[in-house]
Amino acid sequence: MKVVLKLYATLQNYLPPGTQGTAAEVEIPAGTTIEDLFKAYNVPLDQVKIIMVNGRHTDLDYEIQEGDQVAGFPAIAGG
């Protein structure tokens, strides 16, 4: 099934090669969790401080549904 993976700022480097911008449509098997998805793209889990699906907070064990927009955001702290 197709879902949208959005990774921001320092996490953007983990999007599929050739991605323009912060979002990529990716194909995943049914039953994939957010943790599975992030691991498949080598996203360092300890750096993901915000996880949202369709604009709502969720956790790594959420089972992704067809068409979901999964967003990962790091903590940006400098000033």
Binding site: Y8, A9, T10, I76, A77, G78, G79
Partner: peptide, 10 residues
């Protein structure tokens, strides 16, 4: 709120 790091800012 503003925050920056590397080449990024929010």
């Amino acid at each position: 709120h503003g925050a920056v790091s590397e080449f990024y800012g929010v």
